[in-house]
Structures are given as structure tokens and as C-alpha cells.
């Protein structure tokens, strides 16, 4: 697993989400990227119940990623993060007296997966309650494991199809001490998606952006 950057791409002016996504696909294909299947990342939100001590309850996010189909990631707001087997979902059902599923908060991003040289690009439509809320772009540079080493290189690549929408280095990386090293699991990626999803959740529903 290389270095991954997840960012939100604004919908182009006067265009729908789908049209903007199509535009991105076209740019990637012009670069020479090859479509390689599809992907999804989803996230469900749980509230802790029965909070006897009176402390403000933390949110628990349970996420899935099609890159790791046998795993399920559970992220507490502000940590800790854990990776579990896929049947962690079943456990959550059993724990419903402690964690309540916040219905209608499920967010997911689905879309096409492109390969370009040692880069992996995933352009996803972010949906919440079956309405399209935005566009996510995940870029992974698979050959390198040190974010600080390859960030400029990734930025140059993202510029080639995102133009001015290139993000700053993700905070997951900057907050780490020197000798940055992306671990073998995809937790850094998931926390970036989580950040993106919570931004999207707070966003206004885009007019006329219903999908399916």
C-alpha cells in the first residue's frame, strides 16, 4: 500500500455531479490512464448510548473499503482506530444496546478505478440518503511509502487532471512525526474519507442532484 491522498473536487460551474465526473474520466483517459473496475467506500455512524458518566458521547464510524473486502474498519471520533474482520457488522447489531445506528447518516462513495503507471485513481460520487452530495478523488502512488517523499510528485500528477483543485498535503501526514511512513493497512486513507464525508454531511444538498 502506497501513499494515498483523498480530496473533494467541487462540481464544475453549470454542470451536474455526473457531468463533472465524466469530465474527470475523460481527462484521465486522455492522460493514458486505464479503467480497472470500480470501487466503493462506505461509512455508517453509531452513537454510544447509556452514557452513565455524563461525558459527551463519542461517535463511532464503521467503514468498508472495496480494496480490503475482508476487513471492516471502526474509527472512534479522535481515535482509536481499529481494523476488524468483515463480520464486525454483525457484532455491532448485537451491541445495539450500547451503540445506536444513526439512520440516514450512511455516506458512501462509488465510482471508477483507474490505473496510470504506478498511480491508482478513484473518482467517486459521494452519496448520502441516495442523493449525490459531491465528488471524491483518491490518488494513490503505489511505489512509495513515505508521504513526505512523494508529495510534490503526487501534486504534479493531480494538477494534470484536477487543475487548480489540487489539495494541500493531507493532515494525517503532516501531523505525523518525521520519518513519515504509511502503514500497510488503509487506515490513513479511511480517516481521509471520514474527514471528507463529515464535510459533505454538513454541506447543503445540491439542487437537482439526485442519483439512481
Amino acid at each position: 500500500m502506497g501513499v494515498t491522498c483523498v480530496c473533494q473536487v467541487p462540481v464544475a460551474e453549470g454542470k451536474s455531479v455526473q457531468q463533472t465526473v465524466d469530465q474527470l474520466h475523460k481527462k484521465l483517459e486522455q492522460l493514458g490512464a486505464v479503467k480497472q473496475g470500480s470501487f466503493f467506500v462506505d461509512c455508517e455512524t453509531y452513537h454510544a448510548t447509556g452514557n452513565a458518566s455524563g461525558q459527551p458521547s463519542k461517535l463511532l464510524y464503521v467503514m468498508h473499503n472495496s480494496e480490503t473486502p475482508l476487513s471492516c474498519m471502526a474509527l472512534f471520533e479522535g481515535g482509536p482506530y481499529l481494523t476488524a474482520d468483515a463480520n464486525f457488522d454483525v457484532l455491532m447489531v448485537k451491541l445495539k444496546s450500547h451503540f445506536q445506528n444513526a439512520k440516514g447518516h450512511k455516506v458512501e462513495s462509488r465510482g471508477a478505478r483507474y490505473r496510470y503507471c504506478d498511480f491508482l485513481v478513484k473518482v467517486g460520487t459521494v452519496t448520502m440518503s441516495s442523493s449525490a452530495r459531491g465528488i471524491s478523488v483518491e490518488v494513490e502512488y503505489c511505489a512509495c511509502v513515505v508521504p513526505g517523499d512523494c508529495w510534490n510528485l503526487m501534486k504534479e500528477f493531480m494538477q494534470s487532471f484536477l487543475g487548480s483543485n489540487v489539495p494541500e498535503i493531507p493532515s494525517v501526514f503532516t501531523s505525523k512525526p518525521e520519518g513519515l511512513f504509511a502503514p500497510a493497512d488503509c487506515m490513513d486513507t479511511m480517516s481521509q474519507y471520514l474527514e471528507l464525508f463529515s464535510k459533505v454531511r454538513k454541506q447543503q444538498v445540491l439542487p437537482g442532484s439526485s442519483v439512481r
Partner: peptide, 18 residues
């Protein structure tokens, strides 16, 4: 510095994705 050095001729990091 494989991933950190731009090309000494064209000044870019990537060419054909490399």
C-alpha cells in the same frame, strides 16, 4: 531521493507517470 528530485533537464517530477 528517487521520489523527491525533479528532472535536471525538464524540471518536472513526472514524465509518462514516472
Amino acid at each position: 531521493k528517487l521520489f523527491q528530485t525533479p528532472c535536471q533537464r525538464c524540471g518536472k517530477f513526472l514524465q509518462d507517470g514516472l
